[in-house]
Amino acid sequence: MFPTPIKKRTRGWQIGYQAMIPVVLIMWLLPLLAVMLFSIKPEADFVAGDYWSLPSSLEGFKNYGKVFFESDMPRYMWNSIRITVPTVIGCMILSSLTGFALGVYKFKANLWIFFMFIAGNFVPFQILMIPVRDLTLDIGLYNTVTGLVLFHVAFQTGFCTLFMRNFIRALPFELIEAARVEGIAEWRIFWYVVLPLMKPALAAMAVLIFTFIWNDYFWAVVLTQGSETQPVTAGITSFNAQYRAAYHLMSAGSIVAALPPVAMFFLMQKHFIAGLTLGAVK
């Protein structure tokens, strides 16, 4: 293990280390802690120019209540859910198919198609922006959740295919051969042999895509407008324009908007990290 395990060091080192971690952590998260502090302060504190002292009264309930009941925030959150969930499902379906095809079969174009998915996945969004916006307008899906979902599913298929294909490659191929010898149809092999084994990879992928899409801002402003369809990331910016100096509401709103991916991360931590670090070890 590197660095040398702290247990092998002197008692002094150990205590010093244990004391240092929380200090470093607080420094690391300082900007976030500030927002948390802001979100429970009363408006009067900001008016009085008193930003950093302890809140003169705890107004957490009031601030968050306002965000939930008197702003467009719940609407934006609902839109985010309507965009994110179908995208995740769509990606899981498409990429388990493509991943299976590229992971199991040997044919000439295999590696080329695989590389097409990878290369497309790295493309800057701006080169897609004008044509995708036009296409979405042409098929009458501009400013609809469906239009945004269709694009997200298509684009994320690149990353997801990479993910699933590499996962399937790592499965023991004998399983598939054994099934073929038994005369089982190929689609049945997919459905009954490979798909059940893909569950952990699908879970990891779902958490990642959920976070990516929830946090997307660019496509939200390119393909949608207004509180009827825009997700929470775009909502925050219009919230920002509306409540510019209302730091207590802005911070409460931001925390609410950030919460779902954070919750997802803490609930599914193992899957999340397994997904993100795919390929980081051989």
């Binding site: 095809a101 590229l102 998915f117």
Partner: peptide, 25 residues
């Protein structure tokens, strides 16, 4: 044939929304 059928939906979507737009741009 199976890999072609399995690839069809994914490749179609990806081509329409990602690959072709690059050239259009």
């Amino acid at each position: 044939v199976t890999p072609i059928l399995f690839l069809l939906p994914g490749v179609f979507f990806f081509a329409v929304y990602v690959i072709y737009p690059v050239f259009q741009s």
